[in-house]
Design a protein around this nucleic acid. Structure first.
Lengths: 148, 148
DNA sequence: CCAAATGGTTGACAAAGTCAACTAAATGAC
DNA sequence: GTCATTTAGTTGACTTTGTCAACCATTTGG
């Protein structure tokens, strides 16, 4: 393995971290913090789900997650329902209020990326997606292999 | 612009954030925190440089940067020399001690990425680099255009 | 039955980060 | 030259993000 290959991957990671940073630095038009937004997003994708699921998906600390979830419940953004199968666990889901708030955030984040991509031609955007997909595939293949 | 394109870019960003997260979550074998490591890395790349340079390059808060720099100076990791041209500014550089500490961190981070790439064949690694380079080029072209 | 593990909560704290006010130096207008 | 404004960096006070240990209730496994 070539030293330069490692360096190139590290440079790309730094580069893309900056791209992501620009997107994340100011969550658009939203009362939510980044950790909160991440939770909402994951909930919207997988609901109902348990706190444990969020813990693993988001690699968050259980203490911090617990607090944010409690705040969300207090603000009626999420609802909790004790699991019938396991008395220790709760299923979390977005309330109607929560869904509306999430939708607003989602749309605004969408517009951010749109702005980022706008200067590209359609052909360039297609190329971008192609390269992104390929990178993802390369990594996922090996996660699958390593998971065995 | 296609809604699906935006969604795909966002998915890739989330995906790659996880990759980066795995690399960043535990800075290997190092007493340095992530913000500290970022400063060291930037200093190693561009030294001597001013605090203002670090501020801009790293998008850090001037207050926080000032504190970290002060700690580094206290620990003899960096040295400061007042600029002759501008009495308000200091040029920062790594001491010999700082360079050694950075080299250790750099090598360990290098090994982390190596471990990440190890499961890929040489051909796959070359493909990965190719796609990363292309993505970067696509974004950079438009930063250059937008900067005009 | 009971020890160990697990889902989630809470207390206490540290690290990361923010913003305002400040000092000293530089810049620009008059 | 004077003075108002800007800038490089520092410091105080605070918030946000995150951590870890201890805890309680429930489940699991020997």
């Amino acid at each position: 393995m070539d030293h330069d290959q490692i360096r190139a991957v590290r440079e790309f990671s730094r580069f893309y971290t900056n791209i992501i940073g620009l997107l994340n630095q100011h969550l658009p038009e939203s009362p939510f913090t980044l950790p909160e937004a991440r939770i909402l997003y994951e909930l919207n994708q997988h609901q109902p789900c348990t706190a444990s699921h969020l813990l693993e998906s988001l690699s968050m600390d259980r203490g911090y997650l617990s607090r944010i979830v409690a705040q969300f419940e207090k603000k009626k953004i999420i609802a909790r329902k004790r699991s019938k199968e396991d008395g220790r666990a709760y299923f979390l889901s977005l309330t109607a209020t929560g869904k509306k708030m999430f939708a607003r955030l989602d749309a605004a984040t969408h517009r951010q990326v749109e702005t980022l991509l706008k200067p590209m031609t359609e052909a360039q955007r297609k190329k971008l997606l192609h390269h992104m997909g390929e990178i993802r595939t390369l990594f996922i293949q090996h996660q699958a292999d390593n998971g065995k």
